[in-house]
């Protein structure tokens, strides 16, 4: 039975090795990227135009509620991306897979941009409803702190030069951050209810009429898909950058140049 064990062992190993190898990811993502991009674009257009143009205005907030189709997806994405960064960080620390660190490095700027967008859209949305540009609402404040966490990861990435240390230091920071997110959300929630007893929770999804709910769900799915597309584009660039010494990158670049 020994040969069987050997085959199984090598099989596992090659699969695991192949799964994690940047070259394999580069080729597979190259095939899938165009289709994903088209699908994301389609869904985003349908979701947002449906929400912007075809849904009736909200009885309470009038048309300003249409910002929800941009604010809620980006708010979800902002925390979802940080959690997936923490997962990538854990994989980097435990199995030291290079691809996981590339994912962590690529997700940071995307997450920051969405977190920033969620903050701005939330603030602008607050203006017509409460008359002030910034309101210390529980969710907006935790979103602001999440933005600090993102800046922390990006700043640490820039501050350490050696790639190996940089990867694992950011992984540790992201894991510490993700442990902290629920605590921050809880304490800001507690702090907010103590001081203000929030009137209308800004991003509380009011029990939405179906014709509002459907465009929202579509745009949420569209933004998640768009995140995947943006992540794949960034990771492919990152792979070319880090694997520039390998032959397959040279060939890919030459092939790219010719085609």
């Amino acid at each position: 039975m020994i040969w069987y064990a050997d085959i199984r062992k090598t099989m596992n190993w090659t699969f695991f090795h192949k799964l994690g190898s940047p070259k394999w990811f580069y080729e597979i993502s190259g095939k899938w990227l165009p289709w994903l991009a088209i699908l994301a674009a389609l869904m985003m257009v349908t979701g947002l135009t449906w929400g912007l143009l075809f849904t009736p205005p909200d009885y309470l907030q009038g048309n300003s509620y249409r910002i929800i189709f941009l604010h809620v997806p980006t708010a979800f994405l902002a925390s979802a991306i940080y959690v997936s960064m923490a997962i990538a960080g854990a994989v980097t620390l435990i199995w030291r897979i290079k691809l996981a660190d590339m994912a962590l490095k690529s997700m940071a700027p995307i997450g920051t941009s969405f977190c920033f967008l969620a903050l701005i859209t939330g603030a602008i949305w607050g203006k017509p409803t409460w008359g002030t540009w910034w309101v210390w609402d529980a969710r907006l404040t935790s979103m602001l702190i999440l933005l600090f966490l993102y800046f922390g990861v990006i700043a640490l990435r820039g501050a350490i030069r050696s790639a190996n240390t940089q990867a694992r230091a950011c992984a540790i920071l992201t894991l510490v951050g993700v442990v902290n997110i629920p605590i921050i959300k809880f304490s800001v929630q507690w702090w907010n209810t103590l001081h203000q007893g929030s009137t209308l929770k800004l991003t509380e999804k009011p029990s939405m009429a179906p014709e509002m709910l459907w465009p929202l769900l579509i745009s949420i799915a569209a933004f998640y898909l768009f995140f995947t597309v943006a992540l794949i584009i960034r990771m492919r660039t990152e792979i070319l950058d880090r694997e520039r010494r390998t032959k397959w990158v040279r060939n890919a670049v030459e092939a790219g140049a010719r085609s």
Binding site: M44, L48, L52, P57, G62, N63, S64, R66, I67, L70, T74, S113, F114, F116, L117, I120, T121, I124, W125, K127, P128, F226
Partner: peptide
């Protein structure tokens, strides 16, 4: 947009920029 256009459209403009 019933007076709210001045908020909605810049927001979507910014969204497009981020994308």
């Amino acid at each position: 947009m019933g007076g709210h256009g001045v908020y909605v459209w810049p927001t979507y403009g910014l969204g497009l920029l981020v994308i």
